[in-house]
Design a protein around this nucleic acid. Structure first.
Lengths: 223, 223
DNA sequence: TAGTGTGAATGGATTCACAGCC
DNA sequence: GGCTGTGAATCCATTCACACTA
């Protein structure tokens, strides 16, 4: 699969958005789509769309556009979502339990397959009866990573312990962490951290609103 | 307050991270901090830190660094978090109720002050007894925006209705939306949308992990 | 005609490097 | 000596413009 080498990170972020949009277009039974159409829906230029896709190959037909089904398949392959990922969740607090209930992950191929918490009062509790998820202690981490072949984790623990837990996850073989703790994590070489700090996102809004921006602004992901 | 004019959006995003880090440093009773220290904690260069801050004024003392308390106050003023914001939440599903329970917002000056849902089965339900939050129907939107002087909203509704609800919010006077729906919203002029699509963030991880990046990667916010 | 793919040009953001200050 | 603030230089991403194709 294509290496991140030489590919702008913003382009990869947009790839996910293209995929999402294409899936929505397929719902409308659209067979093909042009870079212009795709761009307009997402507020990007057509050149941007073509350039982004061109980093990964030649998917379009001049004069026609891109075949929706084919492009979806290609993008899934590139993003690695042509399979299901077993994802670990660490932290069974309010946010963690919400993420378990949230349907959005499984819909896109990310299955929360195990839940951990170091609070003895929570260990053993059932957090999803239908999926048979009970809270485990962190010392089971290594064994579970092996048995589930889990390479991704969601971290929803207090900031004070986030780095320590992240270190344990990486040591156990996890390669990517989606971090909800409001702290800057330092991943080892070969590993990736993506941060989601909801308060930070709201601050971007309050900055724009208090500054009284005249033009409308649109930001993908907080990205 | 400083207008967004001419200020790079990435710089504003980092401002929030500086603020968060500074608050953590203050916990450790640190009086002053250099751009180098601040940068190392967050994995930015010292020049980056100085340049970002310089967009908004001269806050540092040559030879010394930045006064932690003062810089915190300044950044709060710039970001607009030197006051409390009343935030509306639309969508009382799994994700919405989790966001109500989540403590991270209020800690940083964002108070979820009203909750809406257009499902009649949910209207009237108490979603936070201690804060006296009950679910309201969307037709109360205009009146509530006025009485709470609410300019920010969190959108946690299904993708299919997100744009329609966003339009109502903007029409009622909301100026910024934190959007959890997996769809590209089109804000009117003068308004801002920040998107948080958790599946998109996980896809960034699966891309990096399947592509087998050799170097470690660190991403603030998703972007 | 409609639309891709891509080198060249542009525009922005980051880093460098250093004058000036504590 | 240590550190800020900032023009200059560099780096990177986006946009332009067009040859080429269906």
């Amino acid at each position: 699969m294509a290496k991140p080498e030489g590919i702008p990170a913003p382009a990869v972020r947009r790839l996910s958005l293209y995929l999402r949009q294409l899936e929505s277009l397929r719902e409308s039974n659209l067979r093909s789509v042009s870079s212009k159409q795709l761009g307009q829906a997402l507020r990007f230029t057509d050149a941007q769309v073509r350039k982004d896709l061109a980093y990964f190959g030649q998917f379009g037909q001049p004069g026609i556009g891109y075949n929706v089904d084919e492009l979806i398949a290609r993008l899934r392959g590139i993003l690695g979502t042509d399979r299901t990922w077993n994802v670990l969740l660490v932290g069974a607090g309010n946010l963690g339990r919400a993420l378990i209930a949230y349907r959005g992950f499984a819909k896109r191929g990310f299955e929360i397959a195990a839940v951990f918490d170091n609070d003895p009062a929570k260990v053993g509790a059932t957090v999803s009866a239908e999926r048979g998820l009970t809270v485990r202690a962190l010392d089971e981490l290594g064994a579970v990573v092996q048995s589930l072949d889990a390479r991704l984790a969601v971290l929803a623990v207090p900031a004070a312990v986030a780095q320590a837990v992240a270190d344990e996850l990486f040591a156990a073989g996890v390669r990517g962490i989606l971090n909800f703790a409001p702290v800057a994590l330092h991943p080892p070489a070969g590993a990736t951290v993506v941060n989601v700090d909801l308060a930070v996102q709201l601050e971007q809004l309050s900055f724009n609103v208090s500054a009284g921006s005249e033009r409308s602004e649109y930001r993908s992901d907080g990205g």
